[in-house]
Amino acid sequence: MKSSTLGALTLAIYLITPVRAEEIVVIVNPAAAPISKQQLADLYLAKSSSLIPIDQAANSAMYVEFYKKATGRDTAQVRAIWSRILFTGLGIPPKQLPNSAAVKKAVAANPKAVGYIEKSAVDASVKVALPLD
């Protein structure tokens, strides 16, 4: 019991640490145009629907870090903003994918998709649209 808790904790720290330490980059399809930081904030705060934003798992370290850097908002505020959009029938929150590999795959498959992953995970299937740091 105790050791499994400790194990989970170690795993959690192991999972969180490398993400925190690494730079996050915004990625788009190789065929897409680069985007500005203002455009990015608009997309992820429901002020624009010109592109399709994709999220990492809710409350993952990457998700928390991304919203802080890209929008200046904490996750509770982001959730409140998207709840308002969802329950006014105006749109649905970005689809949440479990990890960077899944985000990369989705962005590579759709010229209108935008996502964010750690810099080291970038390969030729996607294009860096904007560094976040």
Binding site: A80, S83, R84, F87, T88
Partner: peptide, 18 residues
């Protein structure tokens, strides 16, 4: 059947969380 956004808060007036 579409939301009628008469007031600033009428868009989510039934959603206490917002």
């Amino acid at each position: 059947r579409i939301i009628l956004p008469t007031y600033d808060r009428s868009d989510t007036q039934n959603v206490g969380y917002t």
